[in-house]
Design a protein around this nucleic acid. Structure first.
Lengths: 205, 205
DNA sequence: GTGCCGACTGTACTTTGGTTCAATAGATTC
DNA sequence: GAATCTATTGAACCAAAGTACAGTCGGCAC
Protein backbone atom coordinates (compact mmCIF):
# COMPACT_ATOMS: atom_id res chain seq x y z
CA UNK A 1 0.00 0.00 0.00
CA UNK A 2 1.41 3.35 -1.08
CA UNK A 3 1.21 6.46 1.08
CA UNK A 4 1.38 10.04 -0.10
CA UNK A 5 1.60 12.96 2.31
CA UNK A 6 0.86 16.46 1.12
CA UNK A 7 2.35 19.26 3.21
CA UNK A 8 3.19 22.91 2.82
CA UNK A 9 6.85 22.04 2.94
CA UNK A 10 8.69 18.77 2.45
CA UNK A 11 9.83 17.12 5.66
CA UNK A 12 8.31 14.21 7.51
CA UNK A 13 7.68 13.55 11.15
CA UNK A 14 9.35 10.42 12.48
CA UNK A 15 5.99 8.85 13.26
CA UNK A 16 4.94 9.17 9.67
CA UNK A 17 7.90 7.35 8.29
CA UNK A 18 7.57 4.71 10.95
CA UNK A 19 3.90 4.12 10.27
CA UNK A 20 4.20 4.34 6.50
CA UNK A 21 7.33 2.79 5.05
CA UNK A 22 8.04 4.17 1.61
CA UNK A 23 5.86 7.22 2.14
CA UNK A 24 6.19 9.96 -0.43
CA UNK A 25 6.08 13.55 0.80
CA UNK A 26 4.72 16.06 -1.68
CA UNK A 27 4.71 19.85 -1.63
CA UNK A 28 1.23 21.29 -1.75
CA UNK A 29 1.97 23.51 -4.73
CA UNK A 30 2.87 20.48 -6.85
CA UNK A 31 -0.45 18.77 -6.22
CA UNK A 32 -2.48 20.00 -9.16
CA UNK A 33 -0.04 18.34 -11.55
CA UNK A 34 -0.05 14.97 -9.83
CA UNK A 35 -2.24 12.00 -10.68
CA UNK A 36 -2.37 9.35 -7.99
CA UNK A 37 -2.33 5.78 -9.23
CA UNK A 38 -2.57 2.45 -7.45
CA UNK A 39 -3.95 1.54 -4.07
CA UNK A 40 -2.92 3.73 -1.19
CA UNK A 41 -3.84 6.55 1.14
CA UNK A 42 -3.45 10.25 0.50
CA UNK A 43 -2.73 12.28 3.63
CA UNK A 44 -2.92 16.04 3.62
CA UNK A 45 -1.48 18.08 6.44
CA UNK A 46 -3.22 21.17 7.69
CA UNK A 47 -1.07 23.58 9.67
CA UNK A 48 -2.41 25.68 12.50
CA UNK A 49 -4.65 28.45 11.34
CA UNK A 50 -5.00 27.26 7.77
CA UNK A 51 -8.49 26.74 6.36
CA UNK A 52 -9.52 23.15 5.71
CA UNK A 53 -10.09 23.77 2.00
CA UNK A 54 -6.42 24.59 1.56
CA UNK A 55 -5.47 21.04 2.39
CA UNK A 56 -8.23 19.27 0.53
CA UNK A 57 -8.66 21.21 -2.69
CA UNK A 58 -7.06 20.26 -5.96
CA UNK A 59 -6.27 16.67 -5.14
CA UNK A 60 -6.76 14.20 -7.98
CA UNK A 61 -9.41 11.79 -6.73
CA UNK A 62 -9.80 9.73 -9.87
CA UNK A 63 -7.72 6.90 -8.50
CA UNK A 64 -10.20 6.30 -5.71
CA UNK A 65 -7.63 6.57 -2.92
CA UNK A 66 -9.03 7.82 0.38
CA UNK A 67 -7.86 11.20 1.63
CA UNK A 68 -7.15 11.78 5.31
CA UNK A 69 -6.68 15.19 6.87
CA UNK A 70 -3.67 15.42 9.17
CA UNK A 71 -4.46 18.39 11.34
CA UNK A 72 -2.07 20.18 13.65
CA UNK A 73 -5.02 21.34 15.73
CA UNK A 74 -8.03 19.16 15.04
CA UNK A 75 -11.38 20.25 16.28
CA UNK A 76 -14.94 19.19 15.78
CA UNK A 77 -15.85 21.70 13.08
CA UNK A 78 -12.72 20.82 11.14
CA UNK A 79 -13.57 17.13 11.10
CA UNK A 80 -17.09 17.76 9.91
CA UNK A 81 -15.84 20.05 7.20
CA UNK A 82 -13.20 17.58 6.10
CA UNK A 83 -15.75 14.79 5.83
CA UNK A 84 -18.10 17.06 3.93
CA UNK A 85 -15.27 17.81 1.51
CA UNK A 86 -14.87 14.12 0.82
CA UNK A 87 -12.11 13.19 3.22
CA UNK A 88 -12.25 9.75 4.75
CA UNK A 89 -11.14 11.03 8.12
CA UNK A 90 -9.12 13.41 10.19
CA UNK A 91 -6.53 12.81 12.82
CA UNK A 92 -3.89 14.71 14.70
CA UNK A 93 -0.76 15.14 12.64
CA UNK A 94 1.32 14.23 15.65
CA UNK A 95 -0.64 11.05 16.30
CA UNK A 96 1.34 8.02 17.40
CA UNK A 97 2.58 5.47 14.90
CA UNK A 98 0.04 2.90 16.01
CA UNK A 99 -2.80 5.35 15.54
CA UNK A 100 -1.68 6.20 12.02
CA UNK A 101 -1.56 2.52 11.20
CA UNK A 102 -5.04 2.06 12.57
CA UNK A 103 -6.26 4.93 10.45
CA UNK A 104 -4.64 3.33 7.43
CA UNK A 105 -6.36 0.03 8.10
CA UNK A 106 -9.74 1.65 8.38
CA UNK A 107 -9.67 4.11 5.49
CA UNK A 108 -7.68 1.75 3.29
CA UNK A 109 -10.70 -0.47 3.30
CA UNK A 110 -13.17 2.20 2.50
CA UNK A 111 -14.00 3.19 6.04
CA UNK A 112 -14.22 6.54 7.74
CA UNK A 113 -11.94 7.42 10.59
CA UNK A 114 -12.66 9.89 13.35
CA UNK A 115 -10.57 10.06 16.50
CA UNK A 116 -12.24 8.96 19.69
CA UNK A 117 -12.36 12.28 21.47
CA UNK A 118 -13.85 13.92 18.42
CA UNK A 119 -16.21 11.05 17.93
CA UNK A 120 -17.40 11.49 21.50
CA UNK A 121 -18.13 15.11 20.79
CA UNK A 122 -19.93 14.27 17.57
CA UNK A 123 -21.97 11.62 19.27
CA UNK A 124 -22.74 13.94 22.11
CA UNK A 125 -23.88 16.66 19.76
CA UNK A 126 -25.99 14.29 17.72
CA UNK A 127 -27.54 12.70 20.78
CA UNK A 128 -28.38 16.17 22.01
CA UNK A 129 -29.96 17.08 18.73
CA UNK A 130 -31.96 13.87 18.61
CA UNK A 131 -33.06 14.47 22.18
CA UNK A 132 -34.37 17.90 21.31
CA UNK A 133 -36.02 16.90 18.09
CA UNK A 134 -37.61 13.64 19.05
CA UNK A 135 -37.09 11.19 16.25
CA UNK A 136 -39.08 12.54 13.40
CA UNK A 137 -39.26 9.30 11.53
CA UNK A 138 -35.53 8.88 12.09
CA UNK A 139 -36.05 6.01 14.43
CA UNK A 140 -36.47 3.35 11.83
CA UNK A 141 -39.36 1.37 13.19
CA UNK A 142 -39.75 -0.65 10.04
CA UNK A 143 -40.84 -3.69 11.97
CA UNK A 144 -43.63 -1.74 13.63
CA UNK A 145 -45.22 -1.12 10.26
CA UNK A 146 -45.45 -4.79 9.42
CA UNK A 147 -47.36 -7.84 10.55
CA UNK A 148 -45.50 -10.57 12.40
CA UNK A 149 -45.28 -12.78 9.35
CA UNK A 150 -44.07 -9.94 7.19
CA UNK A 151 -41.32 -9.22 9.71
CA UNK A 152 -40.20 -12.84 9.60
CA UNK A 153 -40.01 -12.82 5.84
CA UNK A 154 -38.20 -9.48 5.80
CA UNK A 155 -35.53 -10.73 8.18
CA UNK A 156 -34.89 -13.79 6.05
CA UNK A 157 -34.63 -11.64 2.95
CA UNK A 158 -32.18 -9.38 4.78
CA UNK A 159 -29.98 -12.39 5.35
CA UNK A 160 -29.83 -13.18 1.68
CA UNK A 161 -32.40 -15.95 1.44
CA UNK A 162 -34.26 -16.66 -1.80
CA UNK A 163 -38.05 -16.90 -1.97
CA UNK A 164 -37.80 -20.65 -2.24
CA UNK A 165 -35.60 -20.89 0.84
CA UNK A 166 -37.93 -18.66 2.80
CA UNK A 167 -40.90 -20.73 1.73
CA UNK A 168 -39.24 -23.96 2.85
CA UNK A 169 -38.10 -22.41 6.10
CA UNK A 170 -41.57 -21.14 6.99
CA UNK A 171 -43.38 -24.15 5.51
CA UNK A 172 -45.49 -22.05 3.15
CA UNK A 173 -45.52 -21.74 -0.62
CA UNK A 174 -43.30 -19.48 -2.64
CA UNK A 175 -46.44 -17.70 -3.77
CA UNK A 176 -47.23 -16.69 -0.21
CA UNK A 177 -43.73 -15.39 0.32
CA UNK A 178 -44.19 -13.21 -2.72
CA UNK A 179 -47.50 -11.96 -1.37
CA UNK A 180 -45.90 -11.00 1.93
CA UNK A 181 -43.02 -9.29 0.19
CA UNK A 182 -45.30 -7.31 -2.08
CA UNK A 183 -47.09 -6.07 1.02
CA UNK A 184 -43.79 -5.22 2.72
CA UNK A 185 -42.48 -3.28 -0.28
CA UNK A 186 -45.68 -1.28 -0.35
CA UNK A 187 -45.71 -0.58 3.39
CA UNK A 188 -42.06 0.40 3.63
CA UNK A 189 -41.93 2.20 0.33
CA UNK A 190 -38.99 0.19 -0.96
CA UNK A 191 -38.55 -1.12 -4.46
CA UNK A 192 -37.19 -4.62 -4.09
CA UNK A 193 -35.61 -7.12 -1.76
CA UNK A 194 -32.18 -5.53 -1.92
CA UNK A 195 -33.44 -2.20 -0.68
CA UNK A 196 -35.44 -4.03 1.96
CA UNK A 197 -32.25 -5.74 3.06
CA UNK A 198 -30.48 -2.40 3.45
CA UNK A 199 -33.36 -1.08 5.48
CA UNK A 200 -33.52 -4.07 7.81
CA UNK A 201 -29.77 -4.11 8.28
CA UNK A 202 -29.77 -0.48 9.31
CA UNK A 203 -27.67 0.64 6.36
CA UNK A 204 -30.22 3.16 5.24
CA UNK A 205 -32.84 5.10 7.00
CA UNK B 1 -6.62 -10.81 24.70
CA UNK B 2 -9.70 -12.51 26.10
CA UNK B 3 -13.12 -12.15 24.52
CA UNK B 4 -16.45 -12.64 26.22
CA UNK B 5 -19.72 -12.69 24.35
CA UNK B 6 -23.00 -12.30 26.18
CA UNK B 7 -26.06 -13.63 24.40
CA UNK B 8 -29.56 -14.69 25.27
CA UNK B 9 -28.63 -18.24 24.46
CA UNK B 10 -25.29 -19.95 24.12
CA UNK B 11 -24.21 -20.57 20.54
CA UNK B 12 -21.71 -18.63 18.50
CA UNK B 13 -21.70 -17.48 14.91
CA UNK B 14 -18.81 -18.81 12.88
CA UNK B 15 -17.48 -15.31 12.33
CA UNK B 16 -17.20 -14.75 16.06
CA UNK B 17 -15.10 -17.83 16.67
CA UNK B 18 -12.97 -16.99 13.69
CA UNK B 19 -12.36 -13.42 14.81
CA UNK B 20 -11.91 -14.27 18.47
CA UNK B 21 -10.07 -17.50 19.13
CA UNK B 22 -10.83 -18.77 22.60
CA UNK B 23 -13.94 -16.65 22.95
CA UNK B 24 -16.19 -17.44 25.86
CA UNK B 25 -19.93 -17.35 25.24
CA UNK B 26 -22.04 -16.47 28.27
CA UNK B 27 -25.76 -16.62 28.83
CA UNK B 28 -27.25 -13.29 29.70
CA UNK B 29 -28.93 -14.54 32.85
CA UNK B 30 -25.56 -15.59 34.29
CA UNK B 31 -24.08 -12.15 33.90
CA UNK B 32 -24.85 -10.60 37.29
CA UNK B 33 -22.79 -13.29 38.94
CA UNK B 34 -19.74 -12.85 36.74
CA UNK B 35 -16.72 -10.67 37.40
CA UNK B 36 -14.58 -10.05 34.34
CA UNK B 37 -10.84 -10.12 34.97
CA UNK B 38 -7.84 -9.48 32.74
CA UNK B 39 -7.54 -7.57 29.48
CA UNK B 40 -10.15 -8.26 26.88
CA UNK B 41 -13.34 -7.15 25.22
CA UNK B 42 -16.88 -7.80 26.40
CA UNK B 43 -19.39 -8.19 23.57
CA UNK B 44 -23.10 -8.22 24.23
CA UNK B 45 -25.53 -9.35 21.62
CA UNK B 46 -28.86 -7.62 21.17
CA UNK B 47 -31.50 -9.64 19.35
CA UNK B 48 -34.10 -8.10 17.11
CA UNK B 49 -36.68 -6.13 18.98
CA UNK B 50 -34.91 -6.17 22.34
CA UNK B 51 -34.25 -2.89 24.12
CA UNK B 52 -30.64 -1.77 24.30
CA UNK B 53 -30.65 -1.76 28.11
CA UNK B 54 -31.29 -5.48 28.14
CA UNK B 55 -27.90 -6.12 26.58
CA UNK B 56 -25.91 -3.54 28.51
CA UNK B 57 -27.32 -3.66 32.02
CA UNK B 58 -25.82 -5.66 34.81
CA UNK B 59 -22.36 -6.11 33.34
CA UNK B 60 -19.48 -5.89 35.74
CA UNK B 61 -17.35 -3.01 34.52
CA UNK B 62 -14.84 -3.00 37.34
CA UNK B 63 -12.23 -4.73 35.22
CA UNK B 64 -12.13 -1.84 32.78
CA UNK B 65 -12.78 -3.98 29.71
CA UNK B 66 -14.59 -2.17 26.89
CA UNK B 67 -18.11 -3.33 26.09
CA UNK B 68 -19.29 -3.56 22.48
CA UNK B 69 -22.90 -3.99 21.46
CA UNK B 70 -23.46 -6.67 18.81
CA UNK B 71 -26.78 -5.75 17.31
CA UNK B 72 -28.89 -7.87 15.01
CA UNK B 73 -30.46 -4.73 13.59
CA UNK B 74 -28.31 -1.72 14.31
CA UNK B 75 -29.71 1.71 13.80
CA UNK B 76 -28.66 5.21 14.64
CA UNK B 77 -30.68 5.56 17.81
CA UNK B 78 -29.38 2.25 19.09
CA UNK B 79 -25.76 3.26 18.63
CA UNK B 80 -26.25 6.54 20.40
CA UNK B 81 -28.01 4.84 23.24
CA UNK B 82 -25.32 2.20 23.52
CA UNK B 83 -22.59 4.83 23.69
CA UNK B 84 -24.62 6.78 26.23
CA UNK B 85 -24.81 3.63 28.33
CA UNK B 86 -21.05 3.38 28.32
CA UNK B 87 -20.46 0.99 25.47
CA UNK B 88 -17.34 1.49 23.38
CA UNK B 89 -19.16 0.79 20.16
CA UNK B 90 -21.82 -1.05 18.28
CA UNK B 91 -21.62 -3.21 15.21
CA UNK B 92 -23.79 -5.63 13.31
CA UNK B 93 -23.77 -9.06 14.92
CA UNK B 94 -23.32 -10.62 11.50
CA UNK B 95 -20.34 -8.44 10.69
CA UNK B 96 -17.51 -10.15 8.86
CA UNK B 97 -14.57 -11.58 10.73
CA UNK B 98 -12.25 -8.84 9.61
CA UNK B 99 -14.63 -6.19 10.84
CA UNK B 100 -14.82 -7.77 14.27
CA UNK B 101 -11.04 -7.82 14.42
CA UNK B 102 -10.90 -4.17 13.49
CA UNK B 103 -13.39 -3.36 16.23
CA UNK B 104 -11.24 -5.30 18.65
CA UNK B 105 -8.16 -3.34 17.65
CA UNK B 106 -9.88 -0.03 18.15
CA UNK B 107 -11.77 -0.60 21.38
CA UNK B 108 -8.93 -2.67 22.81
CA UNK B 109 -6.83 0.47 22.69
CA UNK B 110 -9.41 2.57 24.43
CA UNK B 111 -11.09 3.83 21.28
CA UNK B 112 -14.70 4.08 20.29
CA UNK B 113 -15.99 2.14 17.34
CA UNK B 114 -18.91 3.14 15.18
CA UNK B 115 -19.53 1.40 11.87
CA UNK B 116 -18.93 3.43 8.75
CA UNK B 117 -22.51 3.46 7.63
CA UNK B 118 -23.69 4.62 11.00
CA UNK B 119 -20.91 7.14 11.28
CA UNK B 120 -21.93 8.54 7.95
CA UNK B 121 -25.42 9.01 9.28
CA UNK B 122 -24.12 10.72 12.39
CA UNK B 123 -22.02 13.05 10.36
CA UNK B 124 -24.77 13.53 7.86
CA UNK B 125 -22.26 13.27 5.07
CA UNK B 126 -24.57 12.32 2.29
CA UNK B 127 -22.32 14.25 -0.02
CA UNK B 128 -19.77 11.51 0.36
CA UNK B 129 -21.92 8.98 -1.41
CA UNK B 130 -22.61 11.33 -4.25
CA UNK B 131 -18.92 12.00 -4.54
CA UNK B 132 -18.35 8.43 -5.68
CA UNK B 133 -16.25 7.81 -2.64
CA UNK B 134 -15.80 4.34 -1.38
CA UNK B 135 -18.90 3.12 0.34
CA UNK B 136 -18.78 1.12 3.50
CA UNK B 137 -16.17 -1.42 2.58
CA UNK B 138 -14.58 -3.59 5.19
CA UNK B 139 -11.36 -5.28 5.85
CA UNK B 140 -12.72 -8.27 4.08
CA UNK B 141 -10.56 -8.00 0.99
CA UNK B 142 -13.41 -8.43 -1.48
CA UNK B 143 -12.29 -5.40 -3.40
CA UNK B 144 -8.78 -6.77 -3.80
CA UNK B 145 -10.16 -9.70 -5.75
CA UNK B 146 -11.89 -7.51 -8.30
CA UNK B 147 -10.97 -5.17 -11.10
CA UNK B 148 -11.59 -1.47 -10.66
CA UNK B 149 -14.74 -1.54 -12.75
CA UNK B 150 -16.06 -4.54 -10.91
CA UNK B 151 -15.55 -2.73 -7.62
CA UNK B 152 -17.49 0.26 -8.89
CA UNK B 153 -20.40 -1.91 -9.98
CA UNK B 154 -20.33 -3.85 -6.72
CA UNK B 155 -20.53 -0.69 -4.64
CA UNK B 156 -23.50 0.56 -6.61
CA UNK B 157 -25.23 -2.77 -6.22
CA UNK B 158 -24.53 -2.66 -2.49
CA UNK B 159 -26.33 0.66 -2.33
CA UNK B 160 -29.42 -0.82 -3.88
CA UNK B 161 -29.06 0.26 -7.48
CA UNK B 162 -30.63 -1.70 -10.34
CA UNK B 163 -28.65 -2.82 -13.39
CA UNK B 164 -30.29 -0.11 -15.45
CA UNK B 165 -29.35 2.59 -12.95
CA UNK B 166 -25.79 1.34 -12.77
CA UNK B 167 -25.58 1.30 -16.55
CA UNK B 168 -26.80 4.89 -16.80
CA UNK B 169 -24.53 6.01 -14.01
CA UNK B 170 -21.42 4.50 -15.57
CA UNK B 171 -22.49 5.28 -19.14
CA UNK B 172 -22.30 1.68 -20.30
CA UNK B 173 -24.98 -0.79 -21.37
CA UNK B 174 -26.98 -2.95 -19.05
CA UNK B 175 -25.41 -5.92 -20.75
CA UNK B 176 -21.97 -4.84 -19.59
CA UNK B 177 -23.19 -4.38 -16.06
CA UNK B 178 -24.43 -7.95 -16.15
CA UNK B 179 -21.10 -9.15 -17.45
CA UNK B 180 -19.27 -7.41 -14.63
CA UNK B 181 -21.65 -8.82 -12.06
CA UNK B 182 -21.35 -12.34 -13.37
CA UNK B 183 -17.60 -12.02 -13.00
CA UNK B 184 -17.97 -10.61 -9.49
CA UNK B 185 -20.29 -13.41 -8.37
CA UNK B 186 -17.83 -15.95 -9.64
CA UNK B 187 -14.79 -14.30 -8.04
CA UNK B 188 -16.40 -13.74 -4.67
CA UNK B 189 -18.36 -16.96 -4.64
CA UNK B 190 -21.69 -15.31 -3.99
CA UNK B 191 -25.00 -16.25 -5.52
CA UNK B 192 -26.67 -13.00 -6.42
CA UNK B 193 -26.69 -9.25 -5.92
CA UNK B 194 -28.23 -9.45 -2.47
CA UNK B 195 -25.47 -11.62 -1.12
CA UNK B 196 -22.96 -9.37 -2.83
CA UNK B 197 -24.53 -6.45 -1.03
CA UNK B 198 -24.14 -8.18 2.32
CA UNK B 199 -20.52 -8.91 1.53
CA UNK B 200 -19.70 -5.37 0.45
CA UNK B 201 -21.51 -3.96 3.44
CA UNK B 202 -19.45 -6.13 5.74
CA UNK B 203 -22.28 -8.39 6.86
CA UNK B 204 -21.29 -12.06 6.99
CA UNK B 205 -18.70 -13.46 4.63
C1' DG C 1 -74.74 -11.07 11.39
C1' DT C 2 -71.57 -7.99 8.39
C1' DG C 3 -67.29 -6.09 7.67
C1' DC C 4 -62.34 -5.91 8.14
C1' DC C 5 -57.82 -7.95 8.42
C1' DG C 6 -54.17 -11.25 8.30
C1' DA C 7 -52.46 -15.55 6.49
C1' DC C 8 -52.52 -18.26 2.76
C1' DT C 9 -52.84 -19.98 -2.16
C1' DG C 10 -53.70 -20.33 -7.38
C1' DT C 11 -53.09 -18.85 -12.41
C1' DA C 12 -51.14 -15.93 -15.37
C1' DC C 13 -48.32 -12.36 -16.50
C1' DT C 14 -44.32 -8.77 -16.87
C1' DT C 15 -39.93 -7.42 -15.48
C1' DT C 16 -35.47 -8.00 -13.84
C1' DG C 17 -31.60 -10.68 -12.97
C1' DG C 18 -28.30 -13.82 -14.49
C1' DT C 19 -26.02 -17.25 -17.85
C1' DT C 20 -24.24 -19.09 -22.28
C1' DC C 21 -22.90 -18.71 -26.41
C1' DA C 22 -19.61 -15.17 -29.05
C1' DA C 23 -16.93 -11.22 -30.45
C1' DT C 24 -13.90 -6.68 -30.66
C1' DA C 25 -10.43 -3.81 -28.77
C1' DG C 26 -6.87 -1.75 -25.74
C1' DA C 27 -3.23 -2.51 -22.30
C1' DT C 28 0.22 -5.25 -20.16
C1' DT C 29 3.36 -8.98 -19.66
C1' DC C 30 6.73 -12.25 -20.98
C1' DG D 1 4.69 -11.21 -31.30
C1' DA D 2 1.93 -14.18 -28.49
C1' DA D 3 -0.47 -14.56 -24.33
C1' DT D 4 -3.22 -12.56 -20.91
C1' DC D 5 -6.30 -9.44 -18.68
C1' DT D 6 -9.86 -6.06 -18.79
C1' DA D 7 -13.73 -3.52 -20.70
C1' DT D 8 -17.20 -3.66 -23.71
C1' DT D 9 -21.33 -5.40 -26.29
C1' DG D 10 -24.81 -8.51 -28.84
C1' DA D 11 -28.41 -12.23 -29.22
C1' DA D 12 -30.63 -15.64 -27.09
C1' DC D 13 -32.06 -17.84 -23.26
C1' DC D 14 -33.47 -19.50 -18.46
C1' DA D 15 -34.67 -18.44 -13.80
C1' DA D 16 -36.03 -15.65 -10.24
C1' DA D 17 -38.49 -11.79 -8.67
C1' DG D 18 -42.44 -9.21 -8.59
C1' DT D 19 -47.41 -7.81 -10.06
C1' DA D 20 -52.43 -8.38 -11.13
C1' DC D 21 -56.57 -10.47 -10.16
C1' DA D 22 -59.04 -13.72 -7.61
C1' DG D 23 -60.26 -16.62 -3.97
C1' DT D 24 -60.55 -19.41 0.88
C1' DC D 25 -60.32 -19.39 5.81
C1' DG D 26 -60.23 -17.95 10.64
C1' DG D 27 -60.31 -14.31 14.17
C1' DC D 28 -62.10 -9.99 15.91
C1' DA D 29 -64.87 -5.80 16.38
C1' DC D 30 -69.17 -3.34 16.09
Amino acid sequence: MQHWIIDREVGALATWVEAMPGVQILRRDQIPAIRFAGTGVIWSRLRSGEPVELALAGIDRSGGQPVVLLSDEPDEAQVLQALALGAAGCCNSRAATAVLQQVTAVVGNGGLWVGQSLLRKLVGATALRLGQLPAEGENDNWAALLSEREVQVSRLVANGASNKEIADHLAITERTVKAHLTAVFEKLGVRDRLQLSLRVNGLRI
